[in-house]
Design a protein around this nucleic acid. Sequence first.
DNA 1: GCAAAAGTGTTGTACTTACACCCATGG
DNA 2: CCATGGGTGTAAGTACAACACTTTTGC
Lengths: 230, 230
Amino acid sequence: MLQTYYENNDKFLIAVDCIIFGFQDKELNVLLTRRPVEPLKNEWSLMGGFMENGESLDQAAEKILFRYTSHKDIYMEQVGAYGDVDRDSGGRVVSVAYYALVNAENFNTSRAKKYDAKWLSVSKLPKLVFDHNKMVEDAIKLLQYKASNQPIVFKFFDEKFTLTELQDLYEAIYQMQLDKRNFRKKLSNMNLLDKLDEKDKVNSRRGAYYYTFNKERYEKFIEEGNRFSL
Amino acid sequence: MLQTYYENNDKFLIAVDCIIFGFQDKELNVLLTRRPVEPLKNEWSLMGGFMENGESLDQAAEKILFRYTSHKDIYMEQVGAYGDVDRDSGGRVVSVAYYALVNAENFNTSRAKKYDAKWLSVSKLPKLVFDHNKMVEDAIKLLQYKASNQPIVFKFFDEKFTLTELQDLYEAIYQMQLDKRNFRKKLSNMNLLDKLDEKDKVNSRRGAYYYTFNKERYEKFIEEGNRFSL
DNA sequence: GCAAAAGTGTTGTACTTACACCCATGG
DNA sequence: CCATGGGTGTAAGTACAACACTTTTGC
């Protein structure tokens, strides 16, 4: 009786598509691939795949990310579900989009290369298959919102970063210029970064100090009723 | 071959659950029902149902809303997809939550009564089935965000409203008190409301002027680079 | 005439914006 | 010695928060 009620209904393929954001060359990039199967084989596409019985949506997203990049424990966040009847010309598929934030430089693209994966700037995206352009747009809006009031951008770096890099990253995400002194003032007011003794000497002769994000200090900061804002 | 690739994958039941928000007695309410089927029959639940083959997610959401309330053309927005393996004790179901904004007063609950539907304040919600409490929480957060920077709250009213009602509504959504003069100052600065000659004489002897939201003015306002903010 | 809600301005504070020069270093 | 990016403070303007009294009218 119970089974009857549930099982009498239509079932659907559920796909997960990943918008993998990386920061490189002062630009926000998305890791795109040539679609490996028909229809629209070889067209630019997000990395996607089908959800399987034993896994949650979140687990399916991690699986897809791992399949294409061999990376685990990556920060991911759901963007939303896309369910138009004709969104996928290959069949009826409901897709759930997730974005992931990774360090593009240290990112192992050897495996991704097998799939013709490339980092492409969000400001010059090609036409992607199906509704994937819409997914990227929605993901960017969500990322802009989250980045403005939560310290998620640090996931783009391997621990340490210079203030200039951090500002370049925010400019790439917001797609606007920021004032250097005002940006640094906000940062130093929140007092959430630790200055290292080490300098990055690659980008300038003088060298720029590296900083790290202090998670403990951030937790206290929030407990005390403050709000992260950049 | 194409069909093979798609069809070899697992298929899932997809449900849509509706968080129907209404404004009544100076509180933000959700229309809840007693779950009509096993498992957890008669427990408090959101209004939900299964998606069918021929319809999009959005259409399925409209269908569910219509089924329980006989209303069409209601403002709805997707909250997100919920896909934990064991979220529904009756079987493997991925659910997509939507919220809807309605005028609770003029709302036809005769049909809803058939389902034991009741308006319950979001501040004193009972335990709902499955992950429905989480869905409501997420919906409230999204509503708070949207209400702060988009003129969606007017969907709670049938056209006209008093400024006091509008403020009460924002206080219910934000779950905090607002300053009357500051609130009205912001409103009059944006200049998006039209004052009617008519007064509401129910809530006070003096009477409060009714206002309407001017959509054309809002569109110009946005074109000119302004931002809605309340 | 009084209770109950409607309506109305000002001031101090905090935040945001705009803006320009010196510093350190490698080549 | 010079080119390049790193680093720093101040002043003006804007937005936000706090605050209390008068008005209207049905009973």
